[in-house]
């Protein structure tokens, strides 16, 4: 091997980063130079062994996490118990909220955006029924793959499975990126999962979409979403001021009420 064999050049050759002319020149040199052949073989095996080593490490780590979770009963926990725990937690949260509200009623508190969000945020469960029905009645579903179906995603959403609904809606949106209904319900699922940034991005687009049937709802949810974001009070106020003046909006009273609670 010539003394000036460039290790970096060998790596670029092995990773396929060389341009055609450079590669051809390198291969011509490789054919004549046994030491270079040896160096390439050495580097190839060394890099391969390093890759394999990291791969084995990843496999072991995943296996270890899997075993640990198994020992902790993560896989065994029956859903009914999990649901029961969730329900108890929810009941405790409601009681705590009730006590909180009672206390707040006696003594006007400072505005708490998180509390306001939990008071006013209700995932839409009325209009989604009509949408699911319309998807069925126009024979939309049979044309689609089951996993891509908007209807299936909305059924999951209606059932409160926001995590799964979110996955289905994202898959659906890859094929139908302009579908406002899917974007809207994905945003609501994200709100339910406390994923405020992506939800705000989707809702701000829908809040400006004049042809969208749930545009005002999108504005309302956008205002709520802003409450949970850093520096979100002013943008929330701007949206709420508009909704509070809109008599055709079914949550006008709630928009006014929330607007009054916002600190000046």
């Amino acid at each position: 091997m010539s003394n000036d064999v460039n290790i970096e050049q060998i790596h670029r050759y092995l990773s396929g980063e060389m341009e055609v002319t450079e590669r051809e020149a390198f291969e011509a040199a490789l054919e004549k130079d046994e030491a270079l052949q040896e160096a390439v073989r050495f580097e190839q095996q060394l890099l391969g062994a390093i890759e394999q080593s990291f791969e084995q490490q990843a496999r072991q780590d995943i296996g270890q996490v899997h075993r640990q979770l198994k020992e902790q009963g993560f896989f065994e926990a029956p859903r009914s118990i999990r649901l029961l725990v969730l329900r108890i937690a929810a009941a405790a949260a409601v009681i705590a909220l009730g006590i909180g509200i009672g206390w707040f009623a006696l003594k006007p508190p400072a505005f708490d955006p998180a509390l306001a969000f939990s008071q006013y945020f209700q995932p839409d469960s009325t209009e989604v029924d009509g949408i699911i029905e319309s998807l069925t009645s126009v024979g939309f579903t049979p044309e689609m793959n089951r996993s891509d179906s908007l209807r299936e995603a909305l059924l999951l959403y209606r059932a409160g499975n926001h995590q799964q609904a979110s996955g289905f809606l994202e898959i659906f949106l890859r094929d139908h990126p302009q579908n406002d209904t899917a974007r809207f319900y994905l945003a609501l699922a994200e709100l339910s999962l406390s994923q405020y940034e992506p939800a705000a991005e989707r809702l701000s687009g829908l809040a400006r979409a004049d042809g969208f049937g749930q545009q005002k709802q999108a504005q309302w949810y956008l205002a709520l979403c802003y409450l949970r974001m850093a520096n979100g009070l002013n943008p929330a106020r701007q949206v709420l001021e508009k909704l509070a003046e809109d008599e055709s909006f079914d949550k006008q009273a709630e928009a006014r009420e929330l607007l009054e609670k916002l600190p000046q």
Partner: peptide, 15 residues
């Protein structure tokens, strides 16, 4: 290659 990432993915997405 953090194990905490695998654990988080189990908790969030296994179901």
């Amino acid at each position: 290659g953090k194990k905490s990432a695998y654990e988080a993915l189990y908790h969030r997405h296994f179901r």
